[in-house]
Every structure is written in structure tokens, then in C-alpha cells.
Design a protein around this nucleic acid. Structure first.
Lengths: 108, 108
DNA sequence: GGCCGATAGGTAGATCATTGATATATAGTC
DNA sequence: GACTATATATCAATGATCTACCTATCGGCC
């Protein structure tokens, strides 16, 4: 399992809220990143396939709404653990960065 | 300027502590990531060149210690701003992820 | 004197997650 | 009829990172 990049992290975070279908993940990631990040369809579906293969995510169920198929995914326990570890790492690194920036202000 | 990935973020964080030379950055990144990430020389020097070209980092000065050259780099104001923004983003995303995991515990 | 590990900087090619583009399909709006 | 939003999917290209090299100095060891 290669390094988890940001889009992947955000996808797992979206699914941490409960099962969601692909398009729902895209919407949620957009919200939770304050509109900064819009997942492209290509990024999402390839990531979902990869995460399924890695066992971090699994299909939940399918719905048909207005003739359109919705395929829901959910986090596995492995996925929950991976996300928790990753979130802790990111929080730690971000805190260090901010502490250092405060302690060592530049020209500005 | 493409998306800032983790090694890049860690390099900027290392330099937020004050000017450091390449090898010093590698050591610092190893510490501040709790040993999880060991920057390879290839990653570091290509990133340093790219960040210099992007204006986030600039050469500080050179020293000769025991016959070995040390090339120091420092953050520019642009680099400080970029790091601060990135750190805030990561902290926000990590907090949301952890909140969701707590609110919505899995099978475990 | 020769070898090794740590320090220090550097380059070239490969990897692979992400991006951008494209395709398909339905329903509603102009 | 054209367009937008929803929804899933595939594929080639991009590019930051990784792997694997290279050079060189210093100190310790045998």
C-alpha cells in the first residue's frame, strides 16, 4: 500500500460519515475541504477500485434512483484504522508546522 | 504550482525552524515524522530545486565543515504563507476525520 | 594502508496516484 | 434541441516521488 495522498484521505474521510455513493463522495469532499478540492470522476472511481482491492473500502449496496444506479461504499475496519492513523499523523505534522511558524516569524 | 504532497510539506516544515542544509532537512523530517518518513536524497534535492524555482525556498548561504560543503536553504515569505495555509488545511481535514470516526465507530 | 559508516550533494529512469479528457445514460430546465 | 446536474466508468498523460546510482570527505577500526 503506497503512501496515502490527499484525495485518497478525503475519500476515506467522506466515507467515515457513513456509506456514500461515488457522486455523494465528490460532493462531500468538496464541502469538507471548504470548496478547495473538487474530486474529478477519474480520481474517485480509480481510487475506489484501488481502495477496495486494498481492503480499506467495500461495496455496501446499490440503489436505483430515477433510473440512475447508485453504488454505495463503506469503510472496512482496516480502512477505519488506516484513516485514524493517517489523521493523527497529519494533525501532528500540521501542529508542528504551525508551532514553528509562530515561534519563528519571517520578514512579514 | 501543483498540489503540495507530504514530503514537500515536511521539507517546508523543516525549514520553518530556520535555515538548514539538505542533509539537515533529511534528519529533521525523520524526527518530526516520528521516524515514519525518511526522505531520500533524490526526493530532497529535486524538491529543493523545484521549490526554489517556485519561489517558496531560496539559498541562504554555504559553509565548509570538515571539508564538506553545506548548502543552506531558507523559507521565503511566499513559502511561509504557503506552509501556513497548507498546515491549516491539513489540520482542519484531520480534525474532521477524527470527529467523524469518533461519532461513527465501526465494528471495532 | 584499506575498509566501512556517516555525512553531504547530485542525477536518471521508473513508479504510480492523480489529472484531464472522453463516453454513456437519465431527468429536468430553457 | 441544447444544456445542466446526476451518476458511473475508462484511458492516456502528467509529475511528484522513489529507487538506484554516483562522487567525495571524514573518522574509526583493523
Amino acid at each position: 500500500m503506497a503512501a496515502m495522498r490527499e484525495p485518497t484521505f478525503l475519500i476515506l474521510t467522506a466515507l467515515a460519515d457513513g456509506p456514500r455513493h461515488g457522486y455523494g463522495v465528490i460532493k462531500d469532499v468538496s464541502e469538507l475541504s471548504a470548496g478547495r478540492i473538487t474530486l474529478l470522476a477519474g480520481t474517485l472511481y480509480t481510487a475506489l477500485d484501488r481502495l477496495t482491492a486494498e481492503g480499506l473500502v467495500e461495496p455496501d449496496h446499490e440503489e436505483r434512483v430515477d433510473g440512475r444506479l447508485r453504488r454505495y461504499y463503506r469503510l472496512t475496519d482496516t480502512g477505519r484504522t488506516a484513516l485514524a492513523e493517517r489523521a493523527a499523523e497529519l494533525q501532528r505534522a500540521a501542529r508542528i508546522a504551525r508551532t514553528r511558524l509562530r515561534a519563528n516569524p519571517g520578514t512579514a
